[in-house]
């Protein structure tokens, strides 16, 4: 239910004099950005480049990369689009952790040391920070990420209670950035594992009360490269920029497969 828009005395809630510094006072600082480069058109081996940059308090790693690309070295190549963490283009390894460059503020990193940026691991690097995403999307497609409902279509919407809707809410947030899958040590080994992202998207349908094909998805994930390869290292949960409890979702799928078998 909407809360009625009742008038409030601003003084009771907001001290405007104090909240005055919101986005205003922006400090400036220097960073060193160190990026692992790769361009098979130039040389076979990867190399590291370093730049010293002056950045601002609200700047993100993406801003630093843009500063290099736009002002210093146009050949630096990376994917990006929305720049506020909802399109999933710019997952990369920042100081050894999978992050979205547009959601990682420079001031939250240790700026006394170089900020190290690499392509995400486990997928073939194509150029600089760009990897081949096709294997990732192939796994996604294999778990049948779409609703299957064989009952007659009602004229109005299919009914679903708020509780049933809540059941799979967490996994609907996935933006397919691959931060989780490429943080998974099991995936790094040979790329055969379906990976957390595919399982998260299967979870989203398995636990949707409107969907009929949960059994088929469970069967797919019962594969030897399916959920049983998860070692619960929690790398995926830690990496997820959307705050999805990925490992928990994987465990729920395991439980569902077991329950179904018994």
């Amino acid at each position: 239910m909407s809360t009625p828009t009742v008038e409030k005395e601003p003084a009771s809630k907001i001290d405007l004099a104090e909240s005055g510094d919101g986005a205003g006072a922006v400090q400036q600082f220097d960073i060193t950005l160190k990026v692992r480069r790769y361009d098979p058109e130039r040389t076979e081996d990867a190399w590291w480049d370093e730049w010293n940059l002056t950045m601002f308090g609200t700047d993100r790693v993406l801003d630093a990369l843009h500063k290099v690309k736009w002002d210093v070295d146009g050949t630096l190549t990376f994917r990006r689009s929305c720049a506020h963490g909802i399109c999933g283009s710019d997952a990369m390894r920042i100081n050894g952790r999978n992050r979205l460059a547009c959601k990682t503020l420079l001031k939250d990193l240790d700026t006394s040391k170089p900020i190290i940026v690499e392509a995400i691991k486990g997928l073939p690097v194509e150029k600089d920070l760009i990897v081949d995403m096709e294997p990732f999307f192939q796994s996604y497609r294999e778990i049948m990420p779409f609703m299957i409902n064989s009952s007659p279509t009602p004229t109005a919407e299919r009914v679903q209670s708020p509780e049933e809707r809540q059941r799979f809410d967490d996994t609907t947030k996935c933006i397919l950035c691959a931060a989780c899958t490429s943080s998974c040590p099991v995936f790094w080994t040979d790329g055969q594992y379906f990976g957390p992202a595919a399982i998260v998207n299967a979870h989203r349908f398995i636990f949707d009360s409107r969907d009929d094909a949960g059994d088929m998805r469970l069967e797919i994930l019962n594969d030897r490269e399916g959920v049983w390869r998860c070692r619960t290292t929690f790398n995926c949960t830690e990496a997820c920029p959307r705050g999805i409890e990925v490992t928990k979702a994987i465990q729920e799928v395991k439980t569902a497969i077991l329950t179904r078998s018994l």
């Binding site: 109005a156 919407e157 349908f205």
Partner: peptide, 20 residues
Amino acid sequence: AVLDLEKMGLPFNRTPEGKI
């Protein structure tokens, strides 16, 4: 258009009666 999306699987928020 909204009902099409719902049938495609879009997880709308629901009313207590289970409607969109």
